[in-house]
Design a protein around this nucleic acid. Structure first.
Lengths: 218, 218
DNA sequence: GTATATTTCAAACAAGCATTTGAAATATAT
DNA sequence: ATATATTTCAAATGCTTGTTTGAAATATAC
């Protein structure tokens, strides 16, 4: 009777390994052979436990999503009673954290998925991402004020998400640094999050003020 | 002696077709068979004219870059003597136009390239994109004022590029629109460009003002 | 302890696709 | 007009990789 931790089940090892490798290489370039080798199991086990490669991909992605959220809750751990500014800041920081954290794979897979284009995954995306989008849009609406229309809300949302996802690109394009000037990298993630908050709150205010000016003319 | 336009050479047809198909499907999913079929030539012609698939990809990408710039010059056709605000606006509009135009393939290929990860392409990217980046950074420096440091310039650049590239994602993720609320789409490209300009000029001003406040404390 | 179900494994299989080949067709030059 | 170079073509080749197979090993249940 030892207190040894029982080794993880094959299925679990496959999920963990697959989410990492799919994040690194994308669906196409990741081979079942490589995943199984690193998960220390036989190739046939993918078929046995998950049916086929695509289903393993799906499950690994879902798994990564849950793990990432466990490490970085989407509200950033900010009290729901604080100002919209602070809650937006929390959400931006959470997003940046999930993108920058080398152990968070969900967004890396999303990023790689740009090329692959599976219909199934899109469905998952909608399911998983929509609630986060709506939560952020609610904050944006509050910050934009009553004169704002839905299009402006979506544009501001796109501005914020676009900035955050840009870090994803930087993360995966490892540039051959020929002693060039300073360039955004992963060590700046927290600073960049601060920047996005400042930049975006000002952007939102500008739209709000534009609306107020226009409404006077009516 | 007729004034018939001579049919395009095989090599040219391959470049045109390949840039379109690589933009649609990415490197991996695009097959030589399909490209040749649509270019109305034999599969072996890729090997004959370009050596291999990767080199065709390279050449098609370069070709797309040139074509896109021909249609949408990177300065947006704005007079170099106008204000930094207007010149930045011109650049943003050019970028958005090249991203939104269904006949412009360069950025679509960049987008799909996220998954493929060829070292060669990265090198070309640097060559082609760096001048544009520097041009925009010069404008950003001017708008940020003398108190700004290089990191802030890069952050602001990342903010703007990130917003523009977000449109690229929207373009290629054709969502199964289940009668959901309004959502950004390609018809909004011009409006979105306007939005990015307003949003980003305000963001840049906010950083500038932050710097001014901080410099007073010294 | 035996029978049944579950899981692992090495090897074989099959499909997709880039690439090659060598001959046929066409263009170019002299 | 003839010789030479260029371009096209159908078919074959070979590699990569996802999937299947059936037996062996292991766990589970009674």
């Amino acid at each position: 009777m030892t207190d040894n931790i029982p080794p993880l089940k094959t299925q679990q090892r496959l999920l963990i390994t697959a989410s990492r490798i799919f994040a690194e290489k994308g669906y196409q370039d990741a081979t079942i052979a490589e995943i199984c080798e690193q998960a220390e199991t036989n190739i046939a086990s993918v078929n046995y436990h998950f049916g086929d490669k695509e289903n393993l991909y799906l499950e690994a992605w879902r798994y990564a999503f849950q793990q990432d959220l466990k490490a970085h809750p989407s509200d950033g751990g900010v009290d729901q009673n604080t100002s919209a500014e602070h809650r937006l800041k929390g959400r931006i920081q959470s997003l940046i954290a999930r993108i920058a954290d080398p152990d968070s794979h969900f967004f890396a897979i999303v990023h790689k998925e740009m090329a692959h284009q599976t219909r199934l995954l899109e469905k998952i995306m909608e399911q998983e991402i929509n609630p986060e989008r709506e939560a952020m849009n609610t904050l944006i609406r509050e910050l934009l004020g009553d004169n704002a229309n839905e299009k402006q809300v979506q544009f501001c949302h796109a501005s914020i998400i676009g900035q955050c996802f840009h870090l994803l690109k930087v993360k995966h394009i490892k540039l051959n640094n020929e002693t060039r000037h300073y360039v955004l990298d992963m060590n700046d993630a927290e600073d960049f999050a601060e920047h996005i908050v400042t930049f975006s709150l000002a952007g939102i205010q500008a739209i709000r003020q534009q609306n107020q000016l226009n409404s006077i003319h009516d």
